[in-house]
């Protein structure tokens, strides 16, 4: 019991350190290239850190290992968080991050699995990752493989109809090996989701589609781990992760401006200072 708690504490410390590194590194990339989607990077950082450093089974030396757990990043614009997570997970050397969005870089503005190990799908247009993850989960169901499939969508992304096609099919097939995580930061590109086209009650919608739904603080690593590792009761699981767009940088939090805003030098210095805390 005591040993288990110690292991868990170590894991939480690791997740916390990785998350801090990812946020700072993503901020540097966006500042250096004057491009990116820092707001959504920061809202999803703790989710990816919990997945890559607490939950997922993978081997960075063998990225196409058939038995690996799959993580499909459907909000493909948040490459700052995806690339820093894959880098910290050991898929490629840190130097590659310095080539972010440079001409012919492996680190596209949106991910490309053919250039970059660890990427499962070339996402970017919204509403694509969830059906792909569904296919991966069906393949696992057919072969009896024990890998798990996780997919992260943005919350505004839920306005794409293809998600609901996938939700219906996954519910129908009772896919217990599939987990959908929604980065519920409540802001889309230009306005709050609830002012644009409201999503609430999101939990009820997924329950009605046959999903097991839980709601967690998307910045609480222990709560994320608990939700991500909860045993399935036999169907697909949806985790609504309540997050803050721009999390960790006071002047970026809850502001649509930072969906794809780029910090100037003074803002960058302040952001880095706050993110070192």
């Amino acid at each position: 019991m005591e040993a288990q708690r110690e292991t868990n504490d170590l894991r939480l410390t690791d997740i916390s350190e990785k998350a801090r590194w990812m946020r700072r590194r993503a901020m540097q990339m966006v500042h250096a290239k004057k491009l990116g989607h820092i707001g959504g990077d920061l809202s999803a950082t703790d989710i990816l850190a919990a997945l890559y450093f607490g939950v997922l089974r993978y081997d960075p030396k063998n990225p196409n290992w058939p038995e690996r757990d799959r993580f499909v990043m459907s909000k493909g614009h948040a490459t700052g968080v995806l690339y820093t997570a894959l880098c910290a997970a050991g898929y490629f050397p840190e130097g590659w991050l310095d080539t972010y969005m440079e001409p012919a870089s492996k680190l596209n503005g949106h991910p490309n699995r053919n250039y970059l190990p660890g990427v499962e799908a070339n996402t970017g247009p919204l509403g694509h990752g969830f059906p792909i993850a569904l296919g991966v989960a069906i393949a696992g169901q057919l072969s009896g493989a024990d890998y798990k499939t996780f997919v992260l969508t943005g919350d505004g992304e839920q306005q794409e109809g293809s998600n609901w096609e996938a939700a219906m099919t996954a519910g129908h097939r009772r896919l217990s090996n599939l987990t959908l995580i929604i980065d519920r930061n409540r802001l889309q590109q230009g306005a709050p989701t609830e002012e644009t086209v409201s999503l609430d009650p999101l939990e009820d919608k997924y329950r009605a589609f046959g999903w097991e739904v839980s709601e967690v603080d998307g910045h609480d690593h222990a709560a994320l781990l608990e939700a991500l590792e909860a045993p399935s009761s036999g169907g697909p699981r949806c985790i609504i992760a309540n997050t803050v767009k721009g999390k960790g940088v006071s002047f970026m939090e809850h502001k649509t401006k930072w969906h794809h805003g780029v910090p100037n030098d003074a803002e960058f210095d302040q952001a880095m200072e706050e993110l070192s805390a």
């Binding site: 059906p131 569904l134 069906i138 219906m168 129908h172």
Partner: peptide, 25 residues
């Protein structure tokens, strides 16, 4: 069991195809 019918949902159908390929099918 190897006939995956996603219903009347073409976007999902093609995405599921890509995912099945990811899973070795």
């Amino acid at each position: 069991d190897r006939l995956v019918n996603v219903g009347i949902a073409e976007q999902n159908m093609v995405g599921v195809g890509a995912g099945l390929a990811n899973g070795g099918r």
